[in-house]
């Protein structure tokens, strides 16, 4: 069975002066949990953006589940994104909608009917342990709870892959570990997780495969941070 994700000599150049990723190659197997570790501008977000096709490779190839997504037509990108869950750093919640409505809105946006939304949401919210706050508005939630809602929203398509871009970036250590725990639970059920972070505490507490990024290049790869 081929790898779930493959980068082959991938380059992303934002302009003549700014390189997002340089000659990057990587294979990710199904069910892996990978940290993309590095400072701002190191290329870790670019890797995630390539996978959900917010950017296209300048050269090289990006394969996902046997498909060269670097060549994907614009109209097919939404369908690519339905095969993955995307968790942004800033939660991206709608402030005037409750937890339930936030997840429901995302489901409605991809064409799910009212009945399906009603049936699916309780399961998803329970999965990330936020079901008890279903009627709360985002401003009534802690940062960790808001991020759990964002993770819940990323699960609406039952994705085999989760891309989390600094999901603990705005959280205190306690809430960061809570989020990590949820991502690990999802991973233990077979979901592949790619998580961009610069939080060494998180990486040390829950060791997984690590890609150290610097200036758009992979500097080092290892299982544990020394």
């Amino acid at each position: 069975m081929p790898s779930l994700i493959q980068f082959r000599n991938t380059c992303v150049r934002y302009s003549d002066l700014v390189t997002g990723l340089a000659d990057f190659s990587l294979s990710v197997e199904r069910g892996e949990f990978i940290y993309l570790l590095g400072p701002t501008g190191s290329g870790k977000s670019t890797i995630l953006k390539l996978l959900y096709r917010e950017v296209a490779p300048t050269s090289g190839e990006v394969w996902l589940d046997g498909e060269n997504i670097g060549q994907l037509a614009e109209r097919d990108i939404p369908f690519l994104r339905r095969k993955m869950g995307i968790v942004p750093q800033d939660f991206a919640l709608l402030p005037n909608k409750t937890v339930w409505e936030n997840v429901g809105y995302a489901m409605r946006a991809i064409g799910k009917g009212r009945r399906e939304v009603r049936q699916t949401i309780p399961r998803i919210l329970d999965q990330v342990r936020i079901g008890h706050r279903a009627d709360a508005l985002p401003h009534q939630l802690s940062g960790g709870e808001q991020q759990r809602v964002a993770i819940a929203r990323s699960l609406i398509n039952d994705p085999p892959l989760i891309l989390a871009d600094e999901p603990t970036g705005n959280l205190d250590p306690e809430h960061s570990l809570e989020i990590l725990q949820i991502l690990e639970e999802l991973n233990s059920k077979g979901t592949t997780v790619l998580m961009a972070t610069h939080d060494m505490m998180v990486v040390n507490r829950c060791p997984h495969r690590i890609l150290r990024m610097q200036g758009g290049r992979m500097q080092k790869e290892g299982a544990l941070v020394v």
């Binding site: 939404p78 369908f79 991206a92 946006a109 991809i110 064409g111 929203r153 990323s154």
Partner: peptide, 15 residues
């Protein structure tokens, strides 16, 4: 914000 969420979860351009 709504547009970004739609894009993140895979809403089509038409939607």
């Amino acid at each position: 914000r709504e547009i970004r969420i739609m894009q993140l979860v895979g809403a089509t351009r038409a939607t």
